[in-house]
């Protein structure tokens, strides 16, 4: 492509002029976020992008082409750092879009033929639009990843499995159970069963406000999976209204041991594991 080569040539030879102009434009823009980023960093980023851009232009205008890989990598890295710095997607995209004016000025001074000028301008617009959209897309993708990671971290925090006694584990559930959370709960509990060699796991749902069909099914699946591994589950803390809901929903809990309170469940668990706790005759106050 003739135009492409000429554009590449202009950018290469006038890199310093473009850079100066572009940085000045960015610094003057109302969208500049001095609170998030230092001027020197912006200058370095702009310089690096322009130099990579100038090199890539020689390889054509298809930004998916291997010759554009350094530019794409740079965009990915920039998107990541801007997400971390707290920029919005449009602020990140403006980094690329703001190059338009400086680039057009250069094209205007080098191309004299009006027809050619229009073609060159158009080519440059299309190219920068693509790059701008790409960095916006990458920005969004990075934010999604951050959210995803935070969700996972939150899920892990919310499901503690505690050992009550030899061979006995308890999982006190608190809050609403959704599908994703129940899956993590289930995996955590089963993993702890393997690690501790516990024979009985008590799932206490005192802190669960409602139980719908899906949650009930998840509980049943957990019990079934534990059984396949060789451990028994007891579900405790079933409040009267939950008992009613379970029956109304037609969920069959007949295969599962259920107890009203965690204390009752613990007593049964002790019996089954052949352990017992005795009350001493006199209660001794702490000295």
């Amino acid at each position: 492509m003739v135009n492409q080569n000429k554009l590449a040539e202009s950018v290469r030879t006038q890199q310093e002029v473009i850079l100066k102009d572009w940085v000045a434009f960015q610094l003057a823009a109302t969208s500049l976020r001095r609170d998030l980023m230092k001027e020197s960093e912006l200058r370095d980023q702009s310089r690096e992008f322009l130099s990579l851009f100038a090199q890539a232009l020689h390889g054509g205008s298809d930004i998916g082409d291997p010759s554009w890989k350094p530019v794409r990598d740079f965009l990915a890295q920039t998107a990541r750092s801007r997400v971390a710095q707290g920029f919005t997607p449009s602020e990140t995209a403006m980094f690329i879009f703001s190059l338009k004016q400086s680039l057009f000025d250069v094209i205007r001074t080098t191309v004299k033929d009006p027809k050619e000028l229009v073609t060159d301008m158009w080519a440059a617009t299309v190219l920068l639009d693509k790059l701008g959209l790409q960095i916006m897309e990458l920005h969004q993708q990075n934010r999604e990843e951050v959210i995803h990671r935070q969700q996972e971290e939150l899920l892990e925090l919310s499901t503690p499995v505690v050992q009550l006694f030899d061979n006995i584990l308890a999982l006190p559930l608190i809050g609403t159970l959704d599908s994703a959370r129940t899956q993590i709960v289930m995996e955590n509990l089963l993993q702890r069963i393997v690690e501790t060699g516990a024979m009985i796991a008590i799932i206490d749902i005192t802190g669960v406000p409602t139980v719908d069909t899906l949650v009930a099914q998840h509980l049943l699946k957990t019990v079934a999976a534990a059984r396949l591994m060789g451990a028994d589950c007891i579900i405790s803390g079933i409040r009267p209204q939950i008992a009613q809901t379970i029956v109304h929903l037609g969920v069959d809990l007949s295969e599962v041991t259920t107890k009203a309170t965690l204390a009752d469940a613990f007593t049964i668990a002790l019996q089954r594991t052949g352990a017992s706790i005795m009350k001493s005759a006199v209660a001794r106050p702490k000295e």
Partner: peptide, 21 residues
């Protein structure tokens, strides 16, 4: 655990088979 979870989801509970850790 992962095998047990998958088996349950698959619909297989191995009735009549005893299990141990």
């Amino acid at each position: 655990p992962a095998v047990a979870i998958t088996l349950v989801e698959l619909g297989l509970s191995l009735p009549g088979v005893r299990t141990a850790l």
